[in-house]
Structure formats: structure tokens, C-alpha cells
Amino acid sequence: MRRRVEQVGAFKYLGTEIDSLLSFSQHADSVYRKAQQRLFLLRKLRSFDVRKDILTAVYKSLIETVLTFNITSWFNFISVKNKSKLSRIIN
């Protein structure tokens, strides 16, 4: 009896989305979306004249953690376009 083998296009392992080409473009896009959503909160807090040290703590706890989680395994494999998108968030 022959088993049918199905190929998986992409899967999520320990929070990192891995595709069959190891391009990590889906993962970079999802990190970008998460960081954008959290930047909205940071902008709202800034509009309420929250102190800079509190804004820094919010950035480091909510945004920087999303950007840097498991970064050593995927950052070198993403495209220049995705790298520039993520660097815009940091700036």
C-alpha cells in the first residue's frame, strides 16, 4: 500500500512561520503587522502626553520583543524589502 505524501507550503514552529523555501517572508509580514498594531498604541499614549520613560518601557516590552523574538534564525533569510519594512518600525 502506497502512502500519499502531502507537501506543506508553510508551518509555524515555536512562533516562527517557516515556508518550504526558507524565505521567511510570511513570518516577516506577520511580525510587521503585529508591530504596526502595537505602534498604534504607542502613538495613542504619546498623544496623551505620557512621559518618555514610560513610552520607552512600552516600546521595549510590546514592540521590541515582537521584532527580536527568534531573530537570529530568520533575519538573514528575509528579503531586503522586508528588512527595510522592519527597520521603519524601529525608527
Rank of each mutant, 00 (worst) to 15 (best):
Arg2His: 06
Arg4Ala: 12
Arg4Thr: 14
Val5Leu: 11
Glu6Arg: 15
Gly9Ser: 12
Ala10Gln: 05
Lys12Val: 04
Tyr13Met: 08
Leu14Cys: 08
Leu14Ile: 07
Leu21Arg: 15
Leu21Ala: 14
Leu22Ile: 11
Ser23Gln: 08
Ser23Ile: 02
Phe24Glu: 03
Ser25Glu: 12
Gln26Gly: 03
His27Gln: 05
His27Cys: 04
His27Tyr: 09
Ala28Thr: 01
Ser30His: 10
Tyr32Gly: 00
Lys34Phe: 02
Ala35Pro: 04
Ala35Asn: 02
Gln36Gly: 01
Gln36Asp: 04
Leu39Val: 09
Leu39Trp: 00
Phe40Trp: 12
Leu41Trp: 07
Leu42Arg: 05
Arg43Tyr: 04
Arg43Cys: 03
Ser47Ile: 11
Asp49Val: 07
Asp49Tyr: 08
Asp49Gly: 08
Leu55Trp: 15
Thr56Phe: 13
Tyr59Lys: 04
Leu62Pro: 00
Ile63Gly: 00
Thr65Gly: 08
Leu67Arg: 04
Leu67Thr: 01
Phe69Ile: 10
Phe69Lys: 09
Phe69Leu: 10
Ile71Glu: 10
Ile71Asn: 11
Thr72Cys: 13
Trp74Glu: 01
Phe77Arg: 15
Ile78Cys: 06
Ser79Pro: 04
Ser79Gln: 12
Val80Tyr: 05
Lys81Pro: 00
Lys81Leu: 02
Lys81Tyr: 11
